[in-house]
Amino acid sequence: MIKFKLNGLEVQVEEGTTLLEAAHFYGFPVPTLCYHEGLSNWGGCRLCIVELKQGNQSRIVSSCTYLAQNDLNVFTNSEKVVKIRKTIIETMLATVPTSKIVQDLASKYGVHRVRVAVENKDCLLCGLCTRMCIEQMDGKAIGLVGRGDSLKITTAFDKRSDTCRLCGGCIYICPACQIRCIGPNIEKDGPICNACANLEPPCLDQFENMMCYMDPCVACEIGTEKPVKSKL
């Protein structure tokens, strides 16, 4: 058994457990995006970062890839972590504002501004689809190719794949195409929706036809944000 401190609490887990699994097991929420229980750990989105403190030294690591070790002193929500997480969400929102998952993260973690140029991309390069394809669907149809500016998800040689069976696994798992956020009119209002978060419960009275995917509903859970009149 590995023994360490998690947010000040003495905890123990089995060897080989990641810090993320440990945090979830002990009930500390840690946001994730590129993580999925059924897939290998990738460590790309960096949302799951936690701070390791040792004396006056500190280090930030992604909890989904970091294995628990004896005598660690882990903080899942330190000031530094929270601030950096917000910057990550802010840049994600600017890049893929139509992702409902990213919009929900923005609501949940209080991201109300976007200071970089708003784009309308449709991929976060989180690698969920490629891992889904290879690890669960035995497909090997798509992969991450290139680096830096030219990094992209594509099929071998950019040609129609022979091995793709059109199973749709990649689309099912994609945080950008899975569920679209229909909230903001990006050109007009900017990339932040926060609509779900700003609904005053009971929200279904107002939006009979809308299916709320929010889980948990931020409006119900925190309800601290000032209500903004929805433009819908």
Partner: peptide, 18 residues
Amino acid sequence: LYEESCGKCWSCREGLRR
């Protein structure tokens, strides 16, 4: 550095790009 980043980490790839 942006062009040489392997591109896996959001913070590195997008941080440098932004």
